[in-house]
């Protein structure tokens, strides 16, 4: 399980303020803290309020890489901002994200190939997030076909079957789990999978409990990565334990510690 640390995001007030004032400190502190927590990637999102998204992305990428050696996951709906960010990345990054809409796929997939990046493909189109697993899966298949068409190595395609908050759309979680399981059968080698985990508990009480419970359920269905809170200790411990129980890693008494330190330099 690879955790993509979600905290460097302009939706959070401290990061929003840091972008506005060009103050690297909060960004770098979160970069280091998430690395210590056990993150494998750092998500970089300028947030909805940034005046100049391209400039803000470039600045965040540079500032985060000064503090941490972790690879980045560039999170934006603006492909220009992502491409400018990719040019500055020292390690192969993740593009977060494209929908299965053809016009977006045609821009995003060649960009991933050009910069040796991975790409998160969402199982949705302009009409929104499907309710059932079958429709999610048909979008996943389109993304798999696109990887083949544009020459993207299958292990660089990361499919996100999109989880919704459980207090709003309770019927979605079982569909997502079913989809995760089936994505692994679409091709050999199979694409990778990811979820924006914290979304499952939006506006709920006891969010950490919901997050970590769903994470382990999803891992059992084939989840490879999650955009999540890398400083939620109980979540990271649950992920480390699920890896052991799924026989993805050889057990030893210090397995939790090892999970946390795996991506540190």
């Amino acid at each position: 399980m690879l955790i993509i640390g979600e905290r460097i995001n302009g939706m959070f007030n401290d990061i929003k303020k840091a972008i506005q004032e060009k103050d690297p400190k909060p960004v770098q502190e979160w970069a280091k803290r998430q690395e210590e927590g056990g993150a494998a990637y750092l998500d970089i999102n300028v947030g909805p309020g940034a005046a100049d998204r391209v400039a803000a992305m470039k600045w965040l990428v540079e500032v985060a890489q000064e503090a941490s050696d972790l690879p980045l996951c560039l999170d934006s709906t603006d492909f220009t901002a992502i491409e400018e960010g990719l040019k500055l990345c020292k390690k192969p990054a993740i593009i977060n994200s494209t929908s299965a809409d053809r016009d977006k796929v045609e821009v995003a997939f060649p960009m991933a190939v050009k910069y040796n990046a991975s790409i998160i493909g969402l199982t949705m189109d302009k009409k929104g997030i499907p309710k059932d697993s079958d429709t999610r899966l048909s979008f996943a298949m389109e993304l798999v076909a696109a990887a083949d068409e544009f020459g993207l190595p299958m292990e660089n395609l990361i499919i996100d079957p999109l989880i919704l908050p459980c207090n709003v759309a309770q019927d979605h979680a079982p569909e997502v789990l079913k989809t995760l399981h089936q994505i692994k059968m679409l091709s050999d080698p199979a694409p990778k999978t990811v979820l924006g985990l914290s979304n499952v508990s939006q506006n709920c009480d006891n969010r950490p409990l919901i997050n970590r419970t769903f994470l382990t359920m999803a891992m059992a269905c084939g989840l490879d990565m999650a955009i999540a809170d890398a400083n939620d200790d109980a979540l990271m411990e649950a992920a480390a334990t699920a890896e052991i129980l799924l026989n993805q890693n050889i057990y030893c008494d210090s397995y939790v510690k090892l999970f946390r330190e795996r991506h540190q330099k």
Partner: peptide
Amino acid sequence: DINICKQLNI
């Protein structure tokens, strides 16, 4: 014992 092997290396 592979588990002890790994733990000892740690």
